[in-house]
Design a protein around this nucleic acid. Sequence first.
DNA 1: ACTTTGACTTACCAAAAGTAAGTAAATATA
DNA 2: TATATTTACTTACTTTTGGTAAGTCAAAGT
Lengths: 134, 134
Amino acid sequence: MLVLLKNRTLYMKKADINFSEPLNCPVRNILDRIGDKWSLLILLVLEQEDVLRFNEIHQSIGDISQKMLSVSLKNLEADGLVNRKVYPQIPPKVEYKLTDLGKSLIPFVNALSDWSKQHMDTILRNRTAYKKKL
Amino acid sequence: MLVLLKNRTLYMKKADINFSEPLNCPVRNILDRIGDKWSLLILLVLEQEDVLRFNEIHQSIGDISQKMLSVSLKNLEADGLVNRKVYPQIPPKVEYKLTDLGKSLIPFVNALSDWSKQHMDTILRNRTAYKKKL
DNA sequence: ACTTTGACTTACCAAAAGTAAGTAAATATA
DNA sequence: TATATTTACTTACTTTTGGTAAGTCAAAGT
């Protein structure tokens, strides 16, 4: 049986896993970084506009709080997906743009977007039918 | 400027959006469904094993709580990504498997997994370097 | 002297997720 | 006869995460 423990992807029983050996589960690894509510959305708007300031991202996404934008950008920057450039001015000016690594994730977002365009009708119909059954 | 409001993807300023017209933002639409902590992981283990019972999924993932597994499966079922088959026995037996719609999402997960295998070293190095700078 | 500007941070509150215990009904065991 | 076991959950409670609103900093404009 496939076992997807926190940092492992192994075809073995839980009992047989050597916990001291630090293998990694690749799916977990990305999901830990971009599998949240805002990261992919931020990458997407940055890709569209090339360079954006904090408030511009904030307005583009519309319903992200400043706090979460700040936290999310910091994580994306720490992972090297987004570049942060500060201009020493007052009032401050900070520009964000994708790194090459960040850009390399965009095709996935677009592919997911296409999938969504194709299948969202079906999903919404499924969900309506499901609710009726309850 | 690209605006990614809750249910919209529009190249226009926020002020110019007609809020009464119900357009949809495809990226938001999928993220609302699979952009959480567990959904993709559940789809992945189901794909590997074809059919699994509740406790088998639970053990495969390892650190999901029963509560969240229950909630997540219900959502995946409602959206038509997972099929749920109940055998009227005691003790109960319930089998889960992917629908065709659910299966069609697997290539994205695998692609992300490949990306992760390729780039996770870089990301971890980036993060280490970032921490040092602080 | 007071307001505005931009990129945040902080304190406080609400929502989501984790933990542990409980439920149901039949069969197996003591 | 009483108790334990089995499976797929649910419920009550706690912790963590996320959202809201207000505050900060320093200079330039009114």
